[in-house]
């Protein structure tokens, strides 16, 4: 009688734990994705007005006079088979543009990684509530497209799992971040795995870089998978490259 009662308690406890575990994984792997999909959809509409408003506040922060190509250059398009010749002026200075700092938690751009099919709205901030909506930009790092090291974090397996396939990125893959400034394209250079406390990956770097951080391995927050990519084109590319060349020239 006593054994039967004990068995019944153990049986019901096991069933309860099983039901709770199934509910937990359903919540994390299904329900959170639904929440994030809804947030992304809502953010798309807000993003249009946020970007339009930020575009009106773009400022020229700095310029570097270019010592070469200050005279008009002539280009001859040959692909059409015609012999028309056009004359264009090369830029006489490299310009650094800046956009206003987005509000905490607000959508301010998009991130696209064609090689893994990623296309998400970007939010400002890496607090718990913001990352539930989508990838978030660390506010204490430069905005994407600016010189320095812009850091973006995102969930790996829950809340839309934007960075689920980040481990599949290889050197040379492109990451396109669109903000009010325009498209900034980065090329993957490094893939690292570090401890969550290793903040060295978020430190400033010469040039313009984008660092993506997410949990590693999948379904564990034990480590961080880090992708570091370098700016290869965008509104500030000429400025960044000119500054880098001048720094290197000055150093040698």
């Amino acid at each position: 009688m006593r054994l039967r009662r004990s068995l019944r308690v153990v049986g019901w406890s096991s069933v309860t734990v099983g039901v709770l575990l199934v509910a937990f994984f359903l919540y994390q792997l299904v329900f959170t994705n639904v929440l994030t999909a809804r947030s992304q959809k809502l953010a798309e509409a807000q993003l249009v007005s946020n970007m339009a408003s930020a575009a009106k506040q773009i400022e020229v922060v700095d310029t570097i006079p270019l010592t070469t190509s200050t005279s008009p250059t002539t280009t001859t398009p040959g692909s059409t088979g015609t012999t028309t010749t056009s004359t264009t002026l090369a830029p006489v200075e490299a310009v650094l543009y800046s956009e206003p700092t987005p509000d905490e938690g607000a959508p301010f751009g998009t991130i696209q990684i064609p090689s893994i099919g990623l296309d998400k709205v970007l939010f400002e901030g890496v607090d718990v509530a913001t990352l539930k909506k989508g990838p978030g930009h660390m506010p204490w790092t430069p905005l994407p497209g600016q010189p320095g090291n812009a850091v973006i974090s995102g969930h790996r397996t829950t809340y839309g799992a934007p960075f689920f396939n980040l481990d599949k990125l290889e050197a040379g893959d492109q990451i396109i971040v669109t903000t009010a400034l325009g498209d900034s394209t980065y090329e993957v250079r490094e893939k690292l795995i570090v401890r969550p406390t290793d903040v060295s990956v978020t430190e400033p770097m010469p040039g313009a870089w984008l660092t993506l951080t997410t949990c590693n391995p999948k379904y564990s927050a034990r480590e961080r998978l880090i992708i570091q990519a370098q700016l290869i084109s965008g509104p500030n590319y000429l400025y960044v490259e000119t500054e880098r060349e001048q720094t290197m020239g000055g150093a040698s």
Partner: peptide
């Protein structure tokens, strides 16, 4: 209560991948 429990336990699965968070693991 379950919602809070699941949110807390979910941090062990995936906490958003931010850096400079004191690791509890």
């Amino acid at each position: 209560g379950l919602g809070f429990l699941f949110e807390w336990a979910g941090q062990f699965l995936d906490n958003g991948g931010t850096m400079a968070v004191v690791s509890f693991l």
